[in-house]
Amino acid sequence: LVRYRTISKIPQITLNFVDLKGDPFLASPTSDREIIAPKIKERTHNVTEKVTQVLSLGADVLPEYKLQAPRIHRWTILHYSPFKAVWDWLILLLVIYTAVFTPYSAAFLLKETEEGPPATECGYACQPLAVVDLIVDIMFIVDILINFRTTYVNANEEVVSHPGRIAVHYFKGWFLIDMVAAIPFDLLIFGSGSEELIGLLKTARLLRLVRVARKLDRYSEYGAAVLFLLMCTFALIAHWLACIWYAIGNMEQPHMDSRIGWLHNLGDQIGKPYNSSGLGGPSIKDKYVTALYFTFSSLTSVGFGNVSPNTNSEKIFSICVMLIGSLMYASIFGNVSAIIQRLYSGTARYHTQMLRVREFIRFHQIPNPLRQRLEEYFQHAWSYTNGIDMNAVLKGFPECLQADICLHLNRSLLQHCKPFRGATKGCLRALAMKFKTTHAPPGDTLVHAGDLLTALYFISRGSIEILRGDVVVAILGKNDIFGEPLNLYARPGKSNGDVRALTYCDLHKIHR
């Protein structure tokens, strides 16, 4: 019993810090008490220290592992850092350059016999395009090294910054494609005289377009951006097909006994025919423009016929181009109408809503002055909100995010209106959640004399007048207030005048 009563005193000691020596009952000389009392004092002292730490809000209350900052290894790049964003855009520009100039170089340097010394005699450094290609190869190699040090988000939505895990993730992902696209074939085969082989191998750079397509997928929600990307894709495919079309004609031209190829026909049409040795002929500019003209006309199913396939190889390629053109029509131009419709969806919704308003007016036989006010209010409210119901949009977000959005939407009023000066951010967040926005066209009466005042109004834009009878008592403008002081009276009061809008007004109100 003594032991039980001794232990039962522990909660009292913990909360009230009572010393055991003052209790005459606990001072009985028993061996059990002498053993338990020192333990009680020690526990009391420890609990006292913990309570003191909690009340003082000291940093040592938290466990040590929670006080440590997340460790980022040296030379690790955050995937959302500004440097990584700028670097990704730079790589994107280099990939676009590669997609345009690599097929052009591979096709127009394929057994090209233009006048001038061969590239091997001039030297590697004197070729501007080769120098640019070398810079692109170096940048792609540097990009691989950067990807080995860039964080990523795993399946659990955690940012991984450990170098080993980053390397394994990159090896399992895009490393092989990036490595093949970054191989400097110019340096590996330079001086061997195989410019045709170098041009063909350099087309491996186009593998990076797969990554670019995935990154550009984030802009699919913007109709104008999608339309622009589709047109660029169409032009890029036409450019690639033009390079292939020229390569076919250029390879067949020296081996044909009869002059029936499209390059021969082009030379005869523009007065620059090929001679018996295969030299001469149109310039590279004429060849490229004509090839691009043929691919565009074939892809769009126009086909004027002034550039036509004559050999079997050219006919087979033309059939493939027609098939590609039909697929592009289905996948690209078939979506253009939907994209344009999405661009004008706001206008369509406006006309639909206006039609419903006019049908309501016609069905209920609203008189002319009231009908005009109804239409003007709808037009003004639509121009202010673009038909978007803010309350319906915010309803799907958590309250903390709703408060931040409301604070942002009402920031101008909260910053410049005098009653809100000096208020804490928590108070402003709470008030912003209570605001209701209303609009009024010129001549609209917001409050009639004798109406119950259940709200306090803040003028965000425009001006109003307060009338008693036919006498203008006051004219209020931006950041002015009218209405009933909230919670100042037990019952809502009545208006002693009319409140009429002089201009288009936007008002925020808080109800009782």
Rank of each mutant, 00 (worst) to 15 (best):
D143I: 01
L90H: 03
S276D: 14
E157N: 11
S192A: 10
G280Y: 01
N410T: 07
G303F: 01
Q415Y: 11
S383V: 04
L323V: 10
S337I: 03
L93W: 01
L229N: 03
Y246G: 01
A125V: 07
F296C: 04
F108P: 01
L292P: 01
L230P: 03
I270E: 01
P441A: 12
A213R: 10
H380P: 01
L188H: 14
I284V: 09
A106D: 01
R74T: 07
L266D: 01
V142A: 08
R205S: 01
L409D: 02
S345L: 08
F304Y: 14
V100Y: 01
G261I: 01
C427G: 03
A130Q: 05
D444K: 03
T120R: 15
Q127R: 05
W382Y: 15
L176E: 01
K285I: 09
K287R: 04
F140Y: 01
G249K: 01
T203G: 05
F228E: 01
V86Q: 01
L241S: 01
F83A: 11
E376A: 10
A238T: 04
L446Y: 02
G443P: 01
S313P: 14
I183P: 01
M322N: 03
G123R: 15
A440L: 08
T311E: 01
P103T: 04
L401K: 01
T300R: 03
L446R: 03
N335A: 03
G261Q: 02
V142P: 02
P117D: 04
S194Q: 14
E376N: 13
D286W: 06
G123M: 01
I244W: 01
H239C: 01
G334H: 06
K202S: 03
E114G: 14
R373P: 01
F228K: 01
G426E: 08
M328H: 01
F140P: 01
E115D: 05
L279S: 13
G396Y: 05
H351L: 03
F101V: 14
T300M: 04
D257Y: 01
C243W: 01
Q68T: 14
L394W: 02
R421Q: 13
L266F: 01
I405L: 03
E121G: 15
N386D: 04
G173Y: 05
A348M: 13
F83C: 12
L197R: 04
G422W: 01
A449S: 14
I270S: 01
I248M: 01
E221H: 09
L93A: 11
A125K: 15
K202L: 01
Y80L: 06
S297C: 04
I146M: 03
M328L: 14
R421I: 06
V321S: 01
F108Y: 01
S277K: 03
P419V: 13
G223D: 14
G426D: 04
L201F: 07
L227M: 13
P282S: 03
P184S: 01
G346F: 03
V100L: 01
F294V: 01
L370G: 02
K172G: 05
T347E: 12
I339R: 03
R371D: 05
H408G: 02
S277V: 05
V100W: 01
A225N: 05
S105Y: 07
F420S: 02
H439G: 05
T437L: 12
N156M: 13
P442N: 02
P118T: 15
E314K: 01
H73E: 12
F360V: 01
D217W: 05
S313H: 03
A381C: 04
H264E: 03
R74W: 04
C243H: 01
Q372M: 13
Y293Q: 01
Y350I: 01
T150K: 01
L188M: 12
A392H: 15
A125F: 15
V168T: 09
V142E: 01
T113I: 07
F101R: 09
V159R: 03
T385C: 01
P128E: 03
K215L: 03
N265Y: 01
P254A: 15
C427V: 10
K418P: 10
L209S: 13
L370E: 01
W382F: 04
C126P: 01
A155R: 13
Y274R: 03
A392G: 08
F190M: 12
I135K: 01
I237K: 01
G422M: 11
W75N: 04
H448E: 07
K272Q: 01
R421L: 08
E114N: 06
P103M: 01
A155I: 14
Y274Q: 01
S297F: 01
I146F: 05
P441R: 06
T102N: 01
L78M: 06
P398S: 04
G278W: 01
E114L: 08
A432S: 08
H239Y: 03
Y288P: 01
I244M: 05
L355E: 11
L292M: 01
E157C: 14
A167P: 01
H408M: 03
A125D: 01
F83D: 03
W75L: 08
L229S: 04
A119L: 11
N154F: 05
I270R: 01
Q415A: 10
H239G: 01
E196R: 14
T203H: 03
F101W: 15
L263C: 01
V226M: 13
P163G: 09
F304M: 04
E121C: 05
L266P: 01
I177D: 01
G443C: 01
M433I: 09
I177T: 04
V168C: 11
L207N: 04
I183C: 05
K172H: 05
G303L: 01
E114R: 15
F108E: 01
A69K: 14
V226P: 06
W75K: 04
S194M: 13
Y274T: 01
Y274L: 03
L187C: 08
A225I: 09
E359M: 03
D444I: 08
F296Y: 04
A106S: 04
Y246A: 01
V100G: 01
H169L: 01
V321A: 01
W89V: 04
L92K: 03
R421P: 03
R214F: 01
V226R: 11
L206R: 01
Q341W: 06
Y329V: 09
S105P: 01
T311M: 01
V357W: 01
Q379L: 06
Y80V: 09
F175Q: 01
R211G: 06
G325A: 08
Y104S: 01
R259T: 12
E221P: 04
E196C: 10
Y350P: 01
C122I: 01
Y288D: 01
E195S: 14
D217I: 06
A99R: 01
G334F: 02
C427K: 01
R362I: 03
I96W: 01
L413A: 07
M231T: 04
L200G: 04
V302N: 06
I141Y: 01
L67P: 05
L327V: 08
G261W: 01
F294M: 03
F420Q: 01
V136K: 07
I339C: 06
N368I: 05
L327R: 02
I198C: 10
E158W: 01
F190T: 13
N154P: 03
A238C: 03
A155C: 15
Y350T: 01
M322A: 04
L92M: 06
A432I: 08
E375D: 04
Q68M: 15
N306G: 01
P367W: 01
L227G: 01
S276G: 06
I135N: 01
P163K: 01
A423Y: 01
H408P: 01
V100T: 01
Q253M: 14
H79M: 01
R71C: 09
G281Q: 01
I96L: 07
Y65I: 07
I405T: 04
I96H: 01
N410S: 09
I135L: 07
M328V: 09
T76Y: 07
A381H: 15
H239S: 01
R429K: 15
A235K: 01
P163R: 01
T300V: 01
Y222L: 04
Q127F: 11
A213C: 09
S297A: 03
L67T: 13
I324P: 01
N410A: 05
H351A: 05
Y97F: 03
